[in-house]
Design a binder for these strands. Structure first.
Lengths: 199, 199
DNA sequence: GTCTATAGTATGATAGAC
DNA sequence: GTCTATCATACTATAGAC
């Protein structure tokens, strides 16, 4: 295949795909730190080291960048749960999840949970449907947790999943509002202790 | 006192104070529903039925409107806890708080917790210090809850307060992200059951 | 005190050169 | 495919008439 053949068609070539990935990663980071509304296309372009006007070649609208960032977060979550799935004991998988949450305490104290704050912001919109997409990432986490509780054999796996993920979102928000990462440590310890307690 | 005497000085007269109050109430409502960044001065003016350009007579900047909304939320919280303080049993005061949370489930499912979502959005800013003000409202709630646990006589009142308020923020966010008010009901029931369980 | 008109600025998006 | 220049719009905030 010649160069001109690669350039034709809608599929971006290697270099283009690289820039797209750079922009997606930068969008995920900057949108988390600054929020959707306060972030400009120029902010994301700068963080990705891509010229500002060039962004629109890869993403037609700002919302498409938000969508890409959301997919990036979903991907990270999938990577984490895939890794945890290698552990034989479901109880240890859940402990691993909590440990991962606590290890992100400094970021949470400064910017909140990436998915949670994004979902909260997008839920204030009427148009676009990005709010539903954010909900789906939350649902992805809930489903995985519910599966672990199911394997453990607790009475109400769905309820337990809501409680655990809710505790995470809650401690992230409090830690963020009070700017105190130690809240994540304290609550994380409590959640792990609870997993060891008799059902 | 004549009319002209009332009009002098910096103190707004009755009608002006009325408009200020209208604007504050509208700001609290609209900022909760749309978020700070997506809300324009014109949006708030319209909701308060005040001409758009007139707003700047009462509030010099948009941030002052946000500050007023925050104070409004703090006031509502104070009203609620003052009411609950009339109950003799601290355990029943906490149950009353949870009941109040659950009764706001439809609003939470649509727009999240007023204080929590506001705090999350303001925490993404660097300037202004409104983020710290939001943190203080959260702190106000935490302190009251901690006092109740102290009266009950549990081992770690501060930790228990973090857990309870965190659970509220978490269930609000999940309920909002999944657009399901029933999550508030389920988790509320669980929290009340936990209060009845032996320490 | 009340309101209109508008200045000043920032941003999303596009046209078109290279 | 890459990048610059720019349009169109929306918003905060102010000046000043009434």
């Amino acid at each position: 295949m010649t160069d001109s053949e690669m350039s034709r068609g809608t599929r971006p070539r290697a270099k283009a795909a690289g820039k797209r990935r750079q922009l997606t990663a930068a969008a995920a980071r900057v949108l988390h730190e600054q929020g959707v509304e306060r972030t400009t296309i120029a902010d994301i372009a700068r963080a990705a080291e891509v010229p500002a006007g060039n962004v629109y070649y890869y993403f037609k609208t700002k919302d498409e960048l938000v969508e890409a960032a959301l997919a990036e977060h979903a991907g990270h979550l999938r990577e984490l749960t895939d890794e945890l799935d290698k552990l034989p004991e479901p109880r240890n998988r859940l402990k691993g999840l909590i440990t991962a949450w606590v290890s992100g305490r400094d970021t949470a104290a400064r910017y909140g949970c990436p998915t949670g704050t994004l979902a909260a912001e997008l839920d204030k919109r009427d148009e676009g449907g990005l709010d539903l997409l954010a909900g789906r990432v939350v649902r992805q986490l809930l489903d995985w947790v519910e599966r672990q509780y199911g394997e453990i054999g607790v009475a109400d796996p769905e309820g337990r999943a809501l409680t655990l993920v809710g505790a995470y979102q809650g401690m992230s928000l409090l830690s963020n509002a009070l700017r105190d990462p130690e809240i994540m440590t304290r609550e994380g310890d409590r959640l792990i202790r609870e997993l060891d307690a008799p059902a």
